[in-house]
């Protein structure tokens, strides 16, 4: 089980880092979300993996799981959820203002060979 959990966290973190390094904001936002998932899972297992063990003291039980990482991960989930919302809104606003969804904001690089697949920025500006 340790191998499964560790490799799942590793794959998620790797995919997240790859996406964060992309040039457009949408993959970057997805990458940040994946990275926070990997982080949350990592926090959760930092209290060690224990199956069928209660986190709170009970009579007649000798094996416990660590409750603290479960509390920490709740805080981390709430914060990362809020932060993801902020970055979505901010990148959307930046896209609408500059007609460019490049993270470094160079508008001319949008007009590459597959120009058909890119929505027209001026329409996006008037719709909302």
């Amino acid at each position: 089980m340790e191998f499964l959990v560790a490799s799942a966290i590793g794959v998620m973190a790797a995919a997240g880092i790859y996406l964060v390094l992309r040039a457009r904001t949408y993959p970057v936002v997805l990458g940040l979300a994946l990275l926070t998932y990997a982080t949350n899972a990592f926090i959760f297992v930092s209290g060690r993996l224990a199956i069928n063990a209660p986190p709170i003291i009970r009579d007649g039980v000798t094996v416990y799981t660590d409750p603290l990482p479960q509390a920490l991960v709740l805080t981390a989930i709430v914060i990362s959820f809020g932060m993801t919302a902020v970055i979505v809104v901010l990148s959307l606003r930046s896209y609408l203002e500059s007609d460019s969804d490049q993270v470094d904001g160079k508008p001319e690089e949008i007009h590459n060979e597959n120009i058909e697949s890119i929505p027209d920025g001026s329409q996006g500006k008037t719709t909302p």
Partner: peptide
Amino acid sequence: RLKAGVQYVI
């Protein structure tokens, strides 16, 4: 400012 803001947040 928004573009710099997006990079800063990321």
